[in-house]
Amino acid sequence: MLSFIIRRFLGAMAMLVVSSIVTFGIFFVLPKLAGQTTDQLAATYAGKAPTQQAIDDIKVRLGLDEPIAVQYARFVEGVFVGKEFDNGPSEIWCPPPCLGYSFTTNEPVLPKLLDRAPVTLSLALGASVLWVVTGVGIGVLSALRRGSVFDRAAMVTALAGVSLPIYFTGLVSLAVFAYGLGLWPTGVRYVPFTENPVDWAYNLILPWVTLSFLYAALYARLTRAGMLETLGEDYIRTARAKGLPERTVITRHALRASLTPILTVFGLDLGLLLGGAVLTESTFGFAGLGALSIQSIFTGDLPMVMGVVLLATLFVVLLNFLVDVLYAVVDPRVRLS
């Protein structure tokens, strides 16, 4: 088991390194391969109609005139030991873990990310709890009452949930519940949890529901299919043949087996949630990581984009590592073979 965990952990770390290289490569190597000169590359990061001086500054600041491997090494150095930044007249010390400085605002990247993260995390965690509970619950009930009115209604709703885009459901829910019914007459805004937990939750209800609608629909369908498959397994027949009450058969035997694949998907989805969060945040006007990444992409703020991407990768990799370990805890065949 320990060897399994260590192996998976090393794999996760390797994954992180690879994805940082890839991200780095996308911004610095690909343009070069496409035929851009270093000057042109620097110009893309120097705002509109830059002077040659500005371009040269950028080149020096980003180290674009150095070989790519050195550039990557400097980036990694920054992450682990920090680095000095030549910021025009003065030098700024960026302490580790240093992800660089924003091109547009000259703020350090990491504090900005950490500032925005709670918004996205609040959104993501609340929504994920909501969608797992409702999705799995509906899926199980649907499977147990296959063909019933409940099942059919749930599956049609689920189909709608899977196919409707978030900005649509988001806007509709805002129009109906916030303004139409007057439940949030002034619209919703993000209130930090530390400031007022009740307001925090109250303002997040609509975003949570909007974001989880898509996933809940997906999970309901997944759970239903998994449950139906498991209920057809031989060991479920055995459990019934032992004389177990149906409730025990469902909870102890069927649910446990059919939830393991859901666990895998859940790990992935949590990591990939950023995509959904981007839309939800912009629909409700929240200033989270998603909004930040969109804004950074449009302004060509490379260090910020890389920061967001790396943070997201870290999430995906760590959550997958956690899921792998959990899977091994749940399924002895993974652990012991």
Partner: peptide, 27 residues
């Protein structure tokens, strides 16, 4: 439910494929 109580106690069954007939997650 009465028949359920008889199952396992007064009548029991063994199946063709003992691997798939046992729950993989429990000892």
């Amino acid at each position: 439910d009465d028949v359920r109580r008889l199952r396992g106690r007064h009548m029991a069954m063994i199946f063709q494929d003992p691997l798939s007939s046992m729950h993989p997650f429990y000892t």
